[in-house]
Design a protein around this nucleic acid. Structure first.
Length: 433
RNA sequence: GGAGGGAUGGCAGAGCGGACGAAUGCGGGGCACUUGAAAUGCUCUGAGCCUUAGGGGCUCCGUGGGUUCGAAUCCCACUCCCUCCGCCA
């Protein structure tokens, strides 16, 4: 949620800022109007309640003083005022609910630095590594789903049999590669970030905190019987770790990392980039997360991008960094950098990381504040999150990039300690099919 | 799943129909004493909303309902935590 004080004091600025991401002025004006109604009604409620409170206090002292006639009269009077109060309270409550719904749905304000633009075409490439793509041989121009089947390390058919299309199943060295990637990344982060293993099914409240609900309910899996949601990213449980808590400024930035399975319905994505691992319903991802002060946020954002980049460099994958334009930003983000890896087999840039600064938007929803070191009122914290990295697409890019002419795959050295000594995945000889 | 106990400020913990937004302790701030620190003493210290010149009003004692002139306190439902039993990786 955006700061309602800001909306009240500078409505035109908020309207202008949100129009950069395509929010209609009417949507903001509706919120302003709703806010005014809430305040008007709650003012009236306050007055009536004050009257009831006063009458009740006088009633009490009359009773203590033994004047029961006066007490009865005051009681009757108070009851009468109370009737009107009840009706008014219902109106006020309805207004509050309507207001909250509008407020929750209004997206975050883009950062000034975020480039202008309405769609992903206008995202800005800020950096490419290396600057030019290397030359690829024809043996590298084979899509990973073919390589996976050939080497027996990816079994999309079996995955579909168990759970439907877009649920991949990795096998043998394919499964081990996935496990290695997660361990490799967590080991790199754990000197600075506390490693967390959170639950992957969460309450509605938890999904609301990050902004995934109420607006994007169709994107998430929901277990009706227990009213739990399968997390689309570890950002969800990590954000809610400090929900309704007051942190100490000295403890900030508070950095967390977690690898979890991520579940996405990908509603409406049918047929688009859905082959192999390009877009799947379940994938593993290591997430970086931080609670910070406003002043710390920029540095933290840079650091997360640097960390994700550094992993890609260790994995020897060519990548580029995109500065998302205002119109392409996620609902909760003020600024986002996406990292894309080039994958020669399917000849595409694959989004493997998204690093976002959410300002105080999520923390306000979640009630996450910190007490300033110098004392004083608690301040709403800032949250940042970034993937480092999403493994399904990395798996695809690694297998395609590192395919040798004989069809085997030679993995980068950084994974050596995790792969049990062999960087080579060759065609199965005696493996059961 | 069954039985019982509990949920109160940053933390611990009292209160169990009206003088309670809430004792007390810890933690934190300020002041005094001190060369400084410690110890000690004094004092301040929950989160919000509305309104405001000062000030004032209102809400919040797990959540939601109810009873009452009046609810932290009584009733109902739910959630979570603890203990025991059952079941179970």
């Amino acid at each position: 949620m955006i700061d309602i004080q800001l909306l009240r004091s500078s409505p035109e600025e908020v309207i202008a800022a949100l129009s950069r991401r395509g929010v209609d002025r009417a949507e903001v004006e509706a919120l302003i109007e709703s806010d005014a109604l809430v305040r008007a009604l709650s003012g009236q409620v306050d007055l009536l309640r004050a009257e009831v409170n006063t009458l009740s206090r006088r009633n009490a002292s009359a009773r203590r003083g033994g004047d029961s006639a006066l007490a009865d009269r005051l009681g009757a009077q108070s009851r009468e005022v109370g009737e009107g109060l009840k009706a008014l309270e219902r109106d006020a409550e309805a207004a509050r609910t309507a207001f909250r719904d509008l407020w929750l749905r209004l997206p975050n304000i883009p950062a000034d630095g975020a480039p202008d633009g309405a769609t992903s075409d206008q995202n800005v490439v800020v950096r490419s590594h290396p600057e030019e793509l290397p030359a690829y041989g024809s043996h590298q121009r084979v899509p990973h789903w073919e390589i996976g089947a050939e080497l027996g390390i990816l079994d999309m058919e079996r995955g579909a049999k168990l759970s439907g299309s877009m649920f991949p199943m990795y096998r043998g060295m394919g499964a081990r590669l996935l496990r290695s990637l997660g361990a490799f990344a967590l080991d790199r982060h754990s000197e600075l970030y506390e490693e967390i293993h959170p639950p992957t099914m969460v309450r509605t409240e938890t999904m609301i905190s990050t902004g995934h609900l109420p607006k994007f309910a169709d994107e998430a899996y929901h277990i009706e019987r227990d009213d739990l949601w399968a997390i689309p990213t570890a950002e969800v449980p990590l954000t809610s770790m400090a929900r309704d808590e007051i942190l100490e400024e000295e403890d900030l930035p508070l950095r967390l990392t977690a690898q979890t399975a991520c579940f996405r319905r990908e509603a409406g994505a049918a047929g688009r980039d859905t082959r192999g691992l390009l877009r799947v319903h379940e994938f593993d991802k290591v997430e970086l997360f931080a609670y910070t002060t406003e002043a710390q946020a920029a540095g933290e954002l840079d650091q997360m991008v640097a960390r994700a980049s550094s992993l890609l460099e260790s994995l020897c994958l060519p990548y580029r960094v995109l500065d998302l334009c205002a119109g392409d930003l996620g609902n909760s983000a003020r600024r986002t950098f996406d990292l894309e890896v080039y994958s020669p087999g399917c000849d595409r840039w694959l989004e493997v990381s998204s690093v976002s600064w959410c300002g105080d938007y999520q923390a306000r929803r979640a009630g996450i504040r910190y007490r300033p070191s110098g004392g004083g009122k608690p301040v709403v914290a800032h949250t940042l999150n970034g993937s480092a990295l999403a493994w399904a697409r990395i798996w695809a890019a690694l297998v395609e990039t590192n395919r040798l002419e004989d069809g085997s795959v030679l993995l980068p050295e950084c994974l050596g300690p995790y792969l049990g000594g062999s960087l080579l995945i060759s065609a199965p000889q005696d493996r059961r099919r």
